[in-house]
Design a protein around this nucleic acid. Structure first.
Lengths: 233, 233
DNA sequence: TGGTTTACCCGACAAAAGTCGGGGCGCAAA
DNA sequence: TTTGCGCCCCGACTTTTGTCGGGTAAACCA
């Protein structure tokens, strides 16, 4: 497995520059890298299903994924996007819980699978890493709390406006292959038709411009106003 | 402060029977108890506000609380109820993050405030406890994922049916002072009027009975059917 | 090159959720 | 005992969201 060995070397380098594991010594990282395995997923491939008990911790080296839940009638709610450099499935790896969501690759994605036992060993010997994991989970809780509140309290228009303002670098959002209205709608918790309508309204109001390559914010202030529900005392 | 001292003795006893801290030795627990302070909140009192940076970990000895987010127009989304024996604010205490939600007492509630430094010391010396905390946070993530998906994918009727089935002991749910339609609506992410309508429908359909003291499930099967969105291929 | 697929668009409609005005009942303070 | 308040109920209306049927245009492929 010289193929896998050299890959492990790559992972080792990655791990060393990896915030999540800051403070671990070289020997520990090396053992972690050697115990891990490597897997590549094609676009649309399923990494794991909701309800699966999956005991590896995943580290996404390149590519991007989505975590979603779907209902029997086919609607989907994307809970978060996972980008290169992030880890996922603390659920299964650390807490022995069945995963609450399904993970699907948006593009070709390379993933390291770090086995539970190696991880638990580290947690029990490196409290600093345990704290990193706790902080990471705290951030996820914050995101989920925000998502739940937004779904409950904001309109689709407000959620879209918020998302655009968050995602924009400068005033534009580059559209990737999967930044289409279907994925966007799933992210916002609605359906493509409704999203299309809202985009039309925002475009007509002169707040945004959209074409095949990008979304451009024209009127930041106006968009910001639509991102918040109305005051009403 | 002999008052506080004897209270610390009480806390010590509690802590000893506390899953969350299983595996800690007596001396450690004693120091933890002595470092902590005690506070009682009246009904409707605010323990902390969304956005506050609050560095204590809270342990609810008796009473009950709700964690919620509210929008400028006055609507509220309850994220979870906190019952006696649970801890909260891992956010602020362990991850140094501003709290994402507001905590409010539903009834008179007695709370222990465990200071951050004492806790961090334990996490760094007792990996078993760190794992407990991680598992606890994983459970919260699972609950929030479920909440977000339900808000997005299910109707108010389905959410109410699910809640009733979950909360029922046997076939009845005892109504406490705060199990009124206002709180219930905030929990389900809707408004009292809509909830009232749904309750009327379920009652007319012979699935539940409701009076001032309790809610009784008449037809478990029928309720279960309404708890799920329709299949539709 | 033509045919198929994919993403997007749109108007009209249906369903779900939210709002409004009004009214009733029981309990408790004045 | 009256008055006021909290909680709940209800019908009618509006807004928001989801659905349906049908359409166009660019991209992709054999």
């Amino acid at each position: 497995m010289s193929e896998n060995f050299s890959r492990a070397e790559i992972l080792l380098k990655r791990l060393q520059s990896f915030d999540y594991l800051r403070g671990l010594d070289g020997e520990t990282l090396r053992r972690l890298a050697n115990a891990s395995s490597w897997k590549v997923y094609a676009p649309e491939a399923v990494i794991f299903w909701e309800g699966d008990v999956e005991s590896n911790l995943f580290y996404l080296q390149y590519g991007s994924l989505k975590a979603l839940k779907s209902s029997p009638d086919g609607r989907k709610q994307v809970l978060r996007f996972i980008n290169a450099g992030e880890i996922f499935n603390e659920m299964g790896a650390l807490a022995h819980r069945p995963n609450p969501a399904t993970a699907i690759a948006l593009e070709e994605s390379g993933v390291w699978l770090i086995p539970r036992h190696a991880l638990e060993e580290i947690v029990s010997t490196h409290p600093r890493t345990a704290m990193q994991i706790i902080e990471n989970m705290a951030d996820k809780i914050i995101e989920l709390v925000t998502l739940a509140a937004d779904l409950s309290l904001k309109t689709v228009e407000a959620r879209l406006a918020t998302l655009l303002l968050e995602q924009a670098e400068g005033d534009v959002i580059k559209r990737r292959r999967w930044t289409n209205q279907i994925e966007l709608a799933a992210r916002l918790g609605t359906v493509p038709d409704v999203l299309s309508r809202v985009i039309r309204d925002l475009t007509k109001a002169g707040l945004i411009e959209i074409d095949r390559q990008q979304i451009r914010i024209i009127d930041r202030g106006g968009l910001l106003a639509r991102a918040k529900p109305e005051e009403k005392p």
